[in-house]
Simulated scan of single mutants.
Amino acid sequence: MSTYQHIAERAAQVPVRQLCQVLRVAPAAYYAWQHRRQRPTVEPAWQVAVRKAFSQHSQRYGTRQLRVEVQAEGHRVGRWRIRRVLKAYGLRAQQPRSFVPRTTDSDPAVRAAPNRVLGQPAPTVPNRVWVGDITYLPR
């Protein structure tokens, strides 16, 4: 049981100031605790909008993109407030994996495409023969 709860239980029999003096607690601190305890815990609409937008976008949006989404819904909120809400709920944007080009199959049984330029005469003007390699593209 906290000190403030003890004071709240005994407040009917003994004056609050006297209890606070005995327990060495500032009366203002007790009343602030009482005020916080009585305040309704209704979640603001913008916090609901932040969490909804975060889940709608597969938990990939960071504070910048979330701010744009939430402000489009009419809520005036900044990045740092959104950051605090995400941290309070333990939410972190998932970073997409970076693209890593894969090399070609080095299996000797796989036949490479035929070289169609070898049997042709040498080009005489620029921009007649183009050559490219697309082995880095994922399958």
Score class of each variant (00 low, 15 high):
46 W>K: 04
52 K>Q: 15
10 R>D: 02
131 V>E: 04
127 N>F: 12
44 P>C: 08
135 T>D: 05
1 M>P: 06
64 R>W: 07
114 P>L: 15
92 R>W: 06
88 A>R: 04
49 A>H: 05
96 P>N: 08
96 P>L: 13
35 H>C: 07
129 V>L: 14
130 W>E: 12
101 P>H: 11
130 W>G: 15
41 T>N: 11
130 W>Q: 11
74 G>P: 07
3 T>H: 03
60 R>H: 09
33 W>Q: 07
107 D>Q: 01
68 V>Y: 11
18 Q>Y: 00
129 V>A: 04
66 L>V: 07
97 R>H: 10
41 T>R: 09
136 Y>R: 08
49 A>V: 06
117 V>E: 13
5 Q>I: 08
97 R>I: 05
111 R>S: 10
72 A>E: 13
134 I>D: 13
119 G>S: 13
112 A>K: 12
26 A>H: 01
117 V>H: 04
133 D>V: 11
119 G>M: 06
132 G>R: 12
53 A>N: 04
50 V>E: 02
110 V>A: 11
136 Y>W: 14
64 R>N: 06
91 L>Y: 12
6 H>I: 08
33 W>R: 01
32 A>N: 03
29 A>E: 00
123 P>N: 03
99 F>A: 05
67 R>T: 14
132 G>C: 15
112 A>F: 02
55 S>P: 00
